[in-house]
Every structure is written in structure tokens, then in C-alpha cells.
Computed example of a mutant assay.
Amino acid sequence: MSNQEKFKSGFIAIIGRPNVGKSTLLNRFVGQKVAIMSDKAQTTRNRIQGVYTDNEAQVVFIDTPGIHKPKHALGDFMLKTAFSALSGVDVVLFVVNATEKIGPGDRLIIERIKNVEVPVILLINKIDLIEKEELLSIIASYQDEIDFEAVFPISATEGDNVPELVQHIKDIIPEGPQYYPANQVTDHPEYFIVAEFIREQILHLTREEIPHSVAVQVQSMQRNEDDKVEVQATIIVERKSQKGIIIGAQGSMIKRIGQNARREIERLLDDKVYLDLWVKVQKDWRDHQFQLNEFGYKRDDY
């Protein structure tokens, strides 16, 4: 770029109900996996920043926990985290699911974003799962509620209309500096992402048996004598029965969790990994602020 002053940058909040595809979209934006994906609600607990950079602009995307009615201290943390992302951003992306009618969760978000003073773009995701003629009525049902700066029907999994969306974001964000190096795709430390990858496999493999009463702590990451990155991590659950499910018969489940997570971690680090997993019971950890702090859900994050 000949004139560096014309470089643009902006912070973009991605908000929406659980399971509308926000994490998939974030990963699509940055071109690799930085957020975990699951068909379970409330997969994302902290705000995860993904960074897109090209010669013209740098766009910092903030993924947020799905908006839901909190049932415990962790849920309360997640809700406050999601809404706090609306302050200090340049654009808000409101993601909805094309296959579901507008519901109370959507209206809760709409009430909060009505007073936002930055452009709000409606993203109707999962258009690959509906007939094209359904789209106009879906758009109209949301436009009756609020006046959006723009509407983009997209498919985060297939990539439909995502390049056009990125171009539109670049058009409307202000001139600004490059906050992160061009090759950096997230501001989270590797410890955090490694823990999230392990948690993703637990959600995927245990299905309904282990709900969201699981946390993962990475104790250490260091190179061992075999020149592998040795990762020591603890899986925390709330009950003994959950510990048994995660370990599985003759350790079969924890072995599968470890194998799948190791593949993802090796892809992230571009290195050989030795993953050592332990399971620990901490009763009702989601309702104790000290333990929430210990596992990375700190009150000063919102």
C-alpha cells in the first residue's frame, strides 16, 4: 500500500444465540481454527479474538458466548462476557440461524443492540440448509425488529458470501493502525487454545453424558528429551460419575480424547506433541468464584 495512513483497522463483535455458528464463522474469517466448534449450546465461554490481516486492513473479531438465561455463576459470567463485547467495538455482527424462527433469545439480543451506536450487520447463517425462497421472509422478520446497516445471508461452513462480508466490513471500519503482527490469528496464549481443543473433544465424544460441567487446565507445555512438546493438562468435572465416563472402560475414553486433541494441537503448533491428561473432581466448581477464577473465568474479564 503506497499510503500507510489509509490502512484501516477495527474491532468486530460477533453476537448471537447459542449454536448459530459464531465460532465456525470466526474460524472461517481467520482461515484456521482458533475457536472450538460443537453442536452443543454455549461452547464458547470466554471472548475469543481472531485476527484477519491483509494489505489494506486488520480486522479483530471477538467471538462471544451464546446468549442464554444463566443457571449458575459460570452462566452469569458468560452472559456478562457476551454483552460486554458490545462496548468499544466498531461493528457488531448479529448472527442468526436460518433454520430457526426468531425467538426470545434473538429478541433479548435485539433489545441490547438497539442502543448500540455502531453499525449492526445481520448475518443469516446456515443458508445452505434452507430453500432460497424462504430467505426473504426470514430477513423481513428481523428487519421488522430493528434497522440493520446491512444484511448478509451466509454459510459459515461453506464460505458462501463470507468474502463479500469481509470486504463490506473493511469498507466501513475506520482508518487505524495494525494492532497485531500480520501472521498472528489470535491474541489468546497457546495454553488457552490447547485447553479449548481438549474440551472440544470431551464435548464431542461424551455427547450428553458430560454437559458443561467440565473445565480444562493446562499445567505445563515444554519440550521434552524426545524433542516433542509435552503438554500436561487436567480435566475438571463436578462428580465422580463424570470422572468415570471421561476415563471410560480400561481408559478407552480418555485415550480417544487425548488422541483427537493431540492431532488438533499438533496442527496448531506445527510440532509433535505428547499429551498427558489427568481427571480431577471438584464438586460444583461452576458456582464458586474462586474456582471460576482458577480456571480462567475471571470477573475482571468483563
Rank of each mutant, 00 (worst) to 15 (best):
I113S: 05
L122E: 01
V60R: 03
A57Q: 03
A82S: 11
D147C: 12
T99C: 10
S141F: 11
I102E: 11
I130P: 03
E133Q: 13
M78F: 02
E117G: 11
A73G: 14
I173P: 03
D147P: 08
N97Q: 14
T64H: 07
A150S: 13
V95D: 07
V92C: 02
G75K: 05
D160T: 15
I173W: 04
E145M: 09
D63Q: 11
I127Q: 00
P119G: 01
K114R: 15
G75T: 09
N161H: 06
D63T: 07
L136F: 14
G66R: 02
D128F: 08
L123F: 08
L123W: 01
Y142T: 07
S137G: 09
I154S: 03
S87V: 15
V96W: 04
F152W: 04
V116C: 11
D171V: 08
V59R: 09
L129V: 12
M78G: 00
I62W: 09
N115M: 11
L129D: 13
D106G: 09
G66I: 06
N115R: 14
L74V: 08
D76L: 10
S87Y: 13
D106Y: 02
V91S: 01
V89A: 06
Y142E: 10
I169E: 01
K101E: 14
K80V: 11
S87M: 11
V166Q: 08
A73P: 12
L74D: 01
V60F: 01
A85I: 00
D128R: 07
D128C: 09
D147Y: 08
P163Q: 02
P65Q: 06
D147S: 15
R107V: 14
P163M: 05
Q167H: 13
E164K: 13
N161E: 08
T53G: 10
M78C: 09
